[in-house]
Each structure stands twice: as structure tokens, then as C-alpha cells.
Amino acid sequence: MLEMNQIFKVFYEGTPDEKIALNRVNLSMKPGDFVTVIGSNGAGKSTLMNVISGKLTPDMGTVTIDGTNMTSLAEHKRASKIGRVFQDPMAGTAPAMTIEENLALAYNRTKTRTLAFGVTKKRRDFYREKLEMLHLGLENRLQAKVGLLSGGERQALSLLMATFTDPKILLLDEHTAALDPSRAELITNLTKEIVDKLGLTTLMVTHNMQQALDLGNRLIMMDKGQIIFTANEAEKRRLTVEKLLAEFQKIKGGGGLSDRSLLS
């Protein structure tokens, strides 16, 4: 479903600030794979996401999604195949528009936009039915402006909007990091529920190790622009936070106390 081949990306090339964000990264995901990505700040996780979504173009290497080479395709052109939820709950929705209007925007992801009304009676029923999946009562507040919702509600709505048109790839970029623990748990559970139900191929970045272990069938750890550790389904099931940290220490050659505190 997703093939990343020898992806190389460098920022500020030729200056003292030069930083290799991705160093010949290879990643292959089968349909239905749910890969969690962990790593300290600056490891290249977000760059990896941005290269897949098309926000960034890699300097080298190819990105193939669903059999099509999309390496240099503009972000909005490949967005029909990619659903994305951002860390910032404000980023995934339009605050001045109503819940149903936001859903209408998301509904059009895979279609050409026309001069037909975005919200019709039939579609409103469809939106309501989808909102019920969130168990937040949003189905009764279709005409409420999204700016009035709480961060957790907005993030749940973002998740729904990113998934309800069956994307080929779902990108979750620390999507629970800005929420309080109980809201984060709610979104984590919703993520599990929705991904399972739709069988979505998912890539999730997180700083929460427990979450990285609880969700998904594969795990990768990144550091300094490279994938330094991978766990397949069987290996991942045996992993614990302690083992993961030990693994990290081993690869880093010990002494990475600051990294340890960042990761836990």
C-alpha cells in the first residue's frame, strides 16, 4: 500500500545549520498495516509524515502509494488517498464553519467539487450516522460552529473527517499529544475502533510509548533520520516499555539520559 524507497531529505543544505532529516529511509506497509513510530524530537518522524502527505518533497528516493508513484505530486492532488490528523486540535477543522459544513468539506476529499450544495438532507443523515460513532453527542449539534467545541471534541471530529471517506493511508501525527489524559484515552480508543472497523493502513507518530505498544501491529523507532529499530507483529506483542527503552539505550550506546526522559 505504501512503499518508501531510499528517502533522503536535508534541510538548510550548505549552511552551518545543515540537518539531514531523513537518511535513506525505507518503509513498506501492506494493506491494513498499523505502524506506530516513536523517536525523540528531531528524529525525523514529522518529516517522514510530511514526505508521505506531500507537504515536503524528498531530495532523493520515491514514495509509492497504492501502486502510484507520488514522490513529487502536489499535496492537494494526493490528498484524495491520504487522511491526516494533526497534533494541534485546531489544525484539522475550520472553526468558523459548522460541524456539518466541516464534514461536507471532508466528504469532498475523493470527489470533484461542484456547485451542488455541500449539505443536503440525505447527506445530513449520513453525517449524523457517522458522528454517532464518536459517542460525543455531536450528531445533535450539526449546526454548531466547530470553534465552539472543546479540543477533544475537535480532535474526534478531525479523526472522523480524516477517515470517513476511506483513505488508502491514514497519518496520525501525535494526534493525542495536546489533549488531557482522559481525552487522549478517548481519542486513542476511537482511533483503535475506527481503524479496526475500516481496516485502514495507518502510520501513527507518538511520544507515548505505552500508546505505541497498545496500538497497531508493527512498531518502528527512529533516530537522527534513520529507522534504528523495527518490531513485527509477533515481536511487538512481546515488547514492553522497559524493553523498548533498553533497546534504545543499546543502539544509542548508552548514556542517553536526556533521550530517555524525552521518550518516556
Binding site: E75, R84, A91, A94, M97, E101, A104, L105, R109, A162
Partner: peptide, 23 residues
């Protein structure tokens, strides 16, 4: 209120978000 009109409004409201919905 049309599909085009909605994405026009969203451009002024949250540009990054509409782009991620292929507008």
C-alpha cells in the same frame, strides 16, 4: 453553501486543512 463555496470559505478559515482535503 455549495461544495465549491464551502472550500472557498475554508481557505479563509483554515487553509492547511482544506489542502489536506484535496482542495
Amino acid at each position: 453553501k455549495t461544495e465549491v463555496g464551502l472550500s472557498l470559505r475554508a481557505v479563509g478559515d483554515n487553509e492547511g486543512m482544506v489542502r489536506s482535503f484535496s482542495a
